[in-house]
Amino acid sequence: MAEDKLRLGAVGLTCRLIHGAARFPSPEVLAAALAASGTEMITVAVRRLHLDGDQRSELAALDLSAYTVLPNTAGARTAAEAVRLARLARATGLSDFIKIEVVGDEETLLPDPIATLEATRELVAEGFTVMPYCSDDVALCLRLAEAGATAVMPGAAPIGSTLGVLNPFNIRAIINRSPVPTIVDAGLGSPGDAARVMEWGAAGVLVNTGIANARDPAAMAAAFSAAVAAGRAAYLAGLAEHRPEGGYGASSPKDGVPAPLASATR
């Protein structure tokens, strides 16, 4: 079988689980989860250095060169703030990738679709490899792809909620309609959630809280990774189709079955 890699910009990922790095109990647990998952891409944020006291980032213990680093613009409330964070991230010299995140609502942290599209246009023009985190809206994803996004990253549910896929119809429609890879981001709570979207044909998933908040994050990272691989394999194998229009009782062969005895019919 041909190599099955997720192509994003200049990289090809064998593991289709993109790993978050926030809210882990410790840098050691984060490192263990990354290793257990086999992930090749991790997402990180741009933040002010603590001027006093411990300046060390929890990433300091990691060999970032072992991964494709996907910086995000978490914390941005406008397109301009997202663009500024993206430029700062690229100036680290670690990555030309950017995951656009622009909060549109403080309560739910759901993304601002308009600012996300504006930031996508600007950052594509500046030569970034742009992967916008966005609402689970088909038309928006088409517009993001048209604007030059390398992949679209619709949220399954609000960030950190672990609610799973709230709108399966929309996520499936995006997977089917988007001309660029669909990576389901945010809200996936269990490996089953991840497997399900991969079975539908998602190109990958991004998981953070579902792993970081598990009782044993490293074991959960491995479970998510296995689920993503299983879902992908199932998608490639071609799922047996549901046949609701044909009723539910006609799935076994009927021809050639000996007829009931005439004497028994009465």
Partner: peptide, 14 residues
Amino acid sequence: LEVVHLVGGGTTYG
């Protein structure tokens, strides 16, 4: 001056 670096972060938290 803004002095920044990359930190762990997959999501926006308030």
